[in-house]
Design a protein around this nucleic acid. Structure first.
Length: 415
DNA sequence: TCTGGGGTCCTAGGACCC
DNA sequence: TCTGGGGTCCTAGGACCC
């Protein structure tokens, strides 16, 4: 068995806000928020007042009157995040990037070169501070799950090494909410049967847990509560779906709102797919109503698609059926599309799927060949002049853009 | 003919994570 | 002026096949 603590979980602290404080030292030590209408990220000083991501700017300002809003340097986030995570590559090839500001690394095979894992973690922290200028917390443990918990416990700007000899003592004293997969709902359910620590969860009979959370979740949590985590480092995780969404404010569900919005969303998704020679055979839409409750409708196709026009039309059909099931709703507040069941499409098949799949399904629609030409032309212009050079301009979404495009792009996972 | 059972896919909803 | 955007995984019922 793997008896040694060789997994590192490295997590940049309050990443976007820390970058802003580094770029503008006058912001250091002050409560700041990136964003305006919505808080995209905030500093530890702001968190002390209860400010959180996804809050409206107004709400945040109410909690913390001195809060300073900054627009955000999105290009810098990508560059600095890459630079920090790349430092891990100097100590092992086994690095798994989780998001822009977070990664796992396994240094099991490289101790003879760089010393024990704890020493490597210390070096990485020092180098990120010196070479990138940012605080980073690291957890070191025997499993991914425990390393991740370690980095959370270490924050802000700390290091937490969990000795395998005493790891269960450490783990069992922590609140269940720190476990991967335990969010507010599960935490509340567990609390209802008196389980608030990981130790109490470990001591709960499997049957009661299963009744409460279902077989898969209870089995997983049970294993994790004894630090049995089978996951190893996965160096190239591929996305399984690609999606896009747009918050609309409050809009009547009419064609002049729905059509251009869906076209814009399909355009975003499909150009990403085509750029990677991918196509997907399942299209899902999501409609959210004024009371925040949301519904989804999906359709699985015979062949994968990546043409903007085809995805737009399928999405329109799905949204229409969704709305027909909810006639009483007066306003919609969000539309989303997701394309899944992705498959790699060598160019020839991609061209075919763009045309034939659509025509087979809906004979009356615009011919596949001309769609292929239109998409291809658009991809080409954007390749040369950038995304904004051409697009589906729409008056509908003017002014409702609450989140900058830069932020959106950072959230996109590599396809 | 009737009955049981397993496996897999599709769809809708929900919880969670960054 | 209520409440962003991009993802993953699980559940449960029904269809369908063997």
């Amino acid at each position: 068995m793997d008896g040694e603590a060789t997994i590192l979980h490295a997590d940049l602290d309050a990443f976007y806000a820390s970058v802003e404080q580094m770029l503008n030292p006058s912001l250091k030590g002050k409560p700041i928020a990136v964003g305006g209408g919505v808080v995209l990220a905030c500093s530890y000083e702001a968190k002390k007042f209860g400010v959180r991501g996804a809050m409206t700017g107004r709400e945040a300002k109410k909690l913390c009157p001195e809060l300073i809003f900054v627009p955000g340097h999105f290009n810098e986030y990508q560059r600095l995040g890459d630079k920090a995570i790349a430092i891990l590559d100097d100590y092992t090839p086994l690095v798994e990037r989780i998001s822009i500001d977070e990664a796992f690394a396994d240094v099991a095979g490289t101790a003879h070169l760089f010393g024990p894992p704890l020493a490597i973690a210390q070096t990485v922290r020092r180098r990120v501070r010196e070479e990138v200028g940012l605080p980073i917390s690291i957890g070191v443990a025997r499993t991914k799950h425990l390393a991740k918990i370690g980095s959370q416990v270490a924050k802000p700007n700390g290091l937490c090494f969990i000795d395998p000899a005493t790891e269960l003592d450490f783990l069992h004293n922590l609140p269940v909410g720190l476990m991967w997969g335990v969010g507010p709902k599960t935490e509340a359910r567990l609390a209802a049967i008196g389980v608030t620590t990981i130790g109490q969860l470990a001591a709960t009979p499997g049957q009661s847990l299963e009744r409460l959370l279902g077989p898969a979740a209870s089995e997983k949590l049970k294993a994790l509560s004894f630090n049995r985590d089978p996951r190893s480092i996965d160096m190239d995780r591929r996305a399984r779906s690609a999606g896009a969404q747009a918050a609309l404010g409050r809009k009547l569900p009419i064609a002049s709102v729905i059509r251009p919005t869906l076209r814009m969303l399909a355009d975003r998704i499909c150009s990403r797919l085509r750029a990677k020679s991918l196509a997907g055979s399942c299209v899902t839409v999501r409609v959210r109503f004024a009371d925040m409750h949301a519904i989804t409708r999906s359709l699985t196709l015979d062949a994968p698609v990546a043409a903007t026009g085809i995805v737009t039309e399928i999405a329109e059909d799905l949204v229409t059926t969704a709305l027909n099931d909810h006639i009483g709703e007066r306003y919609i507040t969000l539309l989303a599309i997701s394309v899944s069941h992705l498959a790699y499409q060598p160019v020839l098949q991609l061209e075919l799927s763009m045309g034939l799949a659509g025509e087979a399904r809906r004979p009356g629609t615009k011919r596949g060949a001309s769609r292929w030409m239109a998409d291809k032309a658009m991809d080409k212009v954007r390749g040369r002049f950038g995304w904004e050079a051409i697009g589906y301009a729409n008056v509908v979404l003017e002014g409702t853009k609450s989140v900058p495009d830069g932020f959106r792009e950072l959230a996109e996972k590599e396809l």
